[in-house]
Amino acid sequence: MNAGSLVDIPLAGMMVWLAWRAQAGPEPIGAALCFIVLGLLTILAWLRLGAPDVAIAEAAVGTGLTGVLLLEALAAPRPERPGRSTGVPAARRLLAVAALAGGAVLVAVLLRLPETSGLHAAVRERLPATGVSSPVTGVLLAFRAYDTLLEIGVLALAVAAGWGLAGEAPRPRPMSRDPVLDAFARRIVPLGVLVAGYLWWAGGSRPGGAFQAGTVLGVAWVILILTGLEEGPSPTRWHGRALVVGGFALFLAIGLAGPAMAGALLAFPSEWSVNLILLIEAALTISIAACLASLVALLMAAGEPGAGAGG
């Protein structure tokens, strides 16, 4: 055991414990507090894993997401649920025991795993052919681009489904105007735009890329929605829908051109490979941001009294 694991083990333990407390506590604010600390620890974990760029994304995301959580938690009427304490704990305890037992078996198996290097060597060997130098981006947009395409499809479908189910739900209600939140939003959003641009660029060579960039941009958008400075992508407007599915559509179109261009679905001609990947990533960044903003707007609208079944 070295100094590193001296930090890592308590860190991992505390993260698990906080995650448990965040969902087990009876009080929404207490849960939100645990969640915030969990966010801080996650930043730490990324630092420990040697990925300061991801830590930046985490710091940005932590802010926006906890904002949403708090909003939901605080807007809810004071919970008076006596029913919750009767009968449920037994099932909960049973579940906890089952989860612990399952976890123990998993740990036992993981400790006995042989030392395989997975596909690292193969990735390193073939990476130059993709034109990007980050193995993560290479896997996400070249080697396993098909998985990524389907995942983006899941995201776009989730938004479309939410729109379909929400029907004519009211638009999200902003938090009451607050000078602090207002000032915070006006300062942090431009920074978010900058950081998102950076993460997109970084995706070519190190941890980062469309998913992180899109998340940061999306969180900036969410903050604007929360403060009432801006609305989410509108399902009734053409451009709102285009923002949400645009990334998926472009990815799909380029992928389907593959058999003609390079002899296989989702194959890129080698001379354009890196540019196509960056183009797809740029479109994905914007679409992921639009999807996140839409989902949050839907959740907020679903919390409104009189709203239909949303989310």
Binding site: V189, P190, V193, L194, G197
Partner: peptide, 23 residues
């Protein structure tokens, strides 16, 4: 953020401009 990487210069103009525009 980019650790002074020159290859990002082209993009830098765009990113800084859009951040400034948002601001």
């Amino acid at each position: 953020l980019t650790e002074g990487d020159v290859s990002s210069a082209f993009l830098a103009v765009g990113a800084v401009a859009s951040a400034a525009a948002a601001d």
